[in-house]
């Protein structure tokens, strides 16, 4: 089972669900498969831990990163680069939009309504059931509804991202899979893939999953830790 996403993919979810880490790693995964990838940081609501922090490693992989102008990089101002509408009108093989958290973060998508018109796009909701407000199906579907209303776009898939960062256990991954699988059945939303941290992957039996697995090489780390450098080739699994 492979992740075969192409076209325009919009990554949404509640605060801290892991949208940015997933987007960065998805971009790298697809690039390694030979796909031309462009990623835009649309997080206008949170000033910390954004895609822009991984710009260096992504650029080295040959992934184009679209950010607000330099002078606004450290601001919490609602600045949307005009390049974003352009990249939707003339998309790369895979165009990834990493959106800010909750309905507040997704509001930005509504301003791109014209650019999205008549385009086939995928809108994927990242779910970490170990986060507040998304530990139940009802919670996840409430977040979905709020995001859809703010974004004026329909969510059409789920990304399972169960984790406790460094303290994630194999059971957290299996329980997280069961959760998003159940959520997929109840909501009718496709379960696109789940994530597992690279260092945890050897301990996981991926045959237990009916969906692909994205290996996460963590990039957004506090200053006392080092981000895992991306390997040019996909790590096993």
């Amino acid at each position: 089972m492979e992740i075969n996403l192409t076209g325009i993919v919009v990554v949404v979810g509640n605060y801290g669900s892991g949208k940015t880490e997933v987007s960065i790693n998805l971009a790298v995964h697809r690039k390694r498969a030979g796909v031309d990838v462009r990623i835009a940081d649309l997080d206008l609501v949170n000033p910390y831990f954004r895609t822009r922090e991984a710009k260096g490693p992504l650029s080295e992989m040959g992934i184009e990163v679209v950010l607000p102008p330099d002078q606004y990089l450290h601001a919490d101002l609602p600045i949307l680069s005009p390049l974003v509408a352009g990249m939707i009108r003339q998309p790369a093989e895979l165009t990834l939009l990493d959106v800010g958290g909750d309905d507040a973060g997704a509001t930005i998508l509504a301003t791109l309504e014209d650019a999205f018109k008549n385009r086939l796009i995928r809108v994927l909701q990242v779910v970490n059931p170990l986060r507040p407000f998304t530990e139940t199906f009802e919670g996840c579907l409430k977040v979905r509804k709020e995001i859809e209303q703010a974004a004026k776009l329909a969510v059409d898939g789920i990304i399972g991202n169960a984790n406790l960062i460094d303290e994630t256990s194999a059971d957290d991954i299996y329980d997280g899979y069961e959760f998003v699988n159940g959520l997929s059945e109840q909501s009718g939303l496709a379960l696109e893939f789940i994530t597992v941290a690279r260092e945890l992957l050897p301990a996981i039996d991926v045959r237990r999953f009916s969906c692909p697995v994205l290996s996460i090489e963590r990039q957004l780390v506090p200053p006392w830790k080092k981000a895992l450098p991306f390997e040019k080739q996909s790590p096993s699994g």
Partner: peptide, 12 residues
């Protein structure tokens, strides 16, 4: 355990 931002955790 749950995964929380410091700000959320302080509130809780």
């Amino acid at each position: 355990k749950v995964l929380m931002k410091g700000n959320e955790a302080i509130g809780e």
